[in-house]
Amino acid sequence: MVNNPHQDQSMPVGVVVRRSPGVTRWAAWSWKAVSVLPGAAPANWRLLREEGGVAEFHAATPVLQLHPADSEAYLVTLSDKTPAVYVVMRQTGVADRPLQVLLVTASPYEAQDYMDNGEDVVEKLPMPSGLVGWISDFVNAHYEEEIFVKRRRDRKHVDLVEDGVGDARIAQMTDVYRAPGRKEPAA
């Protein structure tokens, strides 16, 4: 874990993936990320427990990185009723390890970008209390609220000339929005 108050901070976070029996005949297994392990050691699909046909694996340990520029996004996450961390995974096509863990992020904005591409699986998981405290300290050190500044109007008078109002082919001032008619030739 790197803790420099003026730079990015990072922490390894283990991802626990659960394999359950499928509920349809087309899918033998259902795979889902179910929790994270802050500060976990590296792992590569290590079996944690198995009971009643359900198995949980420590699939991977990516690094959760916090960037000062994203502190507003972290504040949004912390403001939720249940703060969350997002796990981004991609299908591999391998039967016993069908998901590759790409990323763990605390930014809902970054997670939304991965949800929008349609190729990745994004799981929203409850954030452990130790991770909440670590991210809160980071946000307190880096978040600066943008002060709203009302834009002032130009002093230019735009009401003096009716530029572009109506149709120039209509000679009268009344009903300037009426469609132009065909002029009859003078006899």
Results as ranks from 00 to 15, higher is better:
E162M: 09
G52M: 10
K32G: 10
L78H: 00
P108Q: 04
A55D: 08
Y143R: 10
I147T: 13
D96C: 04
H6T: 08
M11S: 03
T82W: 05
I135F: 03
G166C: 12
P42S: 14
G14H: 03
V54H: 03
S30E: 14
A43H: 09
P38G: 11
L102N: 05
P42H: 07
W26R: 06
L66A: 04
L131R: 00
P83Q: 14
G93H: 07
Y114G: 03
M127R: 03
Y114H: 11
P83D: 15
D96V: 05
I135M: 08
K32L: 12
V76T: 05
L103I: 04
R97C: 10
Y177I: 06
P62I: 01
A60L: 03
T92H: 09
L103S: 09
W134I: 03
T61V: 15
M11V: 01
L78R: 02
R46L: 11
W31M: 12
I135V: 15
A141W: 04
G130P: 02
V2K: 08
P42N: 11
Y86S: 10
V85N: 11
P68E: 01
V17T: 12
P38L: 02
V132Q: 11
L102K: 04
R90L: 15
A168G: 10
A106P: 03
M173E: 09
R169K: 08
M173L: 11
H67S: 03
P5D: 06
K156Q: 07
W31I: 14
A171D: 14
R49A: 15
V16M: 14
D159V: 06
W29H: 07
G53D: 12
E184K: 15
V139L: 12
K150C: 09
P128R: 02
S136W: 02
Y74V: 00
M89G: 13
D159C: 11
V2C: 08
A28T: 13
A55Q: 15
D96K: 00
W31A: 13
V13E: 00
M127E: 02
V122D: 05
L103T: 05
Q9G: 11
W26P: 00
E110F: 02
H157G: 10
N4S: 15
A69M: 01
P180Q: 07
T61C: 13
R152G: 14
D167R: 04
N44Q: 13
G118L: 09
A186Q: 05
S20L: 12
T105K: 00
N44G: 09
M115C: 09
A41P: 02
G52H: 11
T61I: 04
L64W: 00
L78A: 06
V158N: 08
A43L: 08
W134M: 03
D137T: 08
A141G: 07
I147F: 04
K156R: 08
D116T: 06
E162N: 10
I135H: 02
V15F: 05
